[in-house]
Design a protein around this nucleic acid. Structure first.
Lengths: 128, 128
DNA sequence: TTGACATATTCCTATATAGGAATGTAATGT
DNA sequence: ACATTACATTCCTATATAGGAATATGTCAA
């Protein structure tokens, strides 16, 4: 099976960097496509396609004004993402506090076990 | 061009629902692959492949223990997502307060313009 | 060494893009 | 009616999956 459709949900829609850029640009303001094109620096057809994806999942709203179409970010639709990520907040706080405890322990009793996973909460995995 | 690699960043990695499920399951605990398989209900090779993607972008950490490999969610790697989504918080609060103002105005002066975009911050776009 | 157990990887296929180029469509000015 | 402006859609192609099946790799126990 292939990857899920970009229009299946907000998570798939925001996987594309240019779409996140557009969402940021349209946050709090309403802009016609032409201005988005100028601001983002992509060909107009590409911008229109991205806007279609964003619109399909409700991440942007559109309003017609003469021959222009004004788009704006629908911030409400981003809340679920924020909340999903937020469910992990207590865990990254945990990690931080464990690092802090480790640091304090180090000061008190000398060199800790540097191979402990607790000692390397930010060690990077191998590059792709 | 095709879609960006799922291992290009966390945004692409979490686009897959099963991977989000795995991340939630591994939040705060360390589990061997076999238990993840049992919990998520996917074939073992699929789980291993998802774990590889998650590991490549740093969303999970792995530790070997005998013949098992213990995985756990690296909550730190989810913070950027939370923060990105959080940059829109003031806008959804704006929308909410505008709805509130509208509601209050309605009480004071009667029926508002229901076609105003302000009056329909949650209207759903067309289904795909 | 051999076998069993725990995971990872490879091969194959159907599907879904994202970008570029060209074209279609709707609204406006004259 | 006609040219122009502002967008949207279609067509084509290279690429990147995600899942199923089969297989490879690594570790421990007897």
């Amino acid at each position: 099976m292939a990857r899920a459709s970009t229009t299946s949900d907000a998570f798939n829609a925001i996987a594309e960097p240019r779409r996140r850029e557009i969402l940021s640009y349209l946050a709090g303001t309403e802009r016609p496509v032409g201005e988005i094109v100028a601001a983002i620096g992509l060909p107009q057809p590409s911008v229109s396609k991205h806007l279609r994806v964003l619109h399909d999942v409700g991440l942007v709203r559109m309003r017609c004004q003469g021959r222009q179409k004004l788009y704006r970010t629908n911030a409400q639709a981003i809340r679920p993402l924020h909340e999903w990520a937020g469910t992990f907040e207590r865990y990254w706080q945990h990690q931080l506090s464990r690092v802090k405890e480790l640091a304090e322990a180090t000061v008190r009793q000398g060199s800790p076990d540097l191979n402990s996973p607790i000692a390397n909460p930010e060690s990077k995995p191998k590059e792709k």
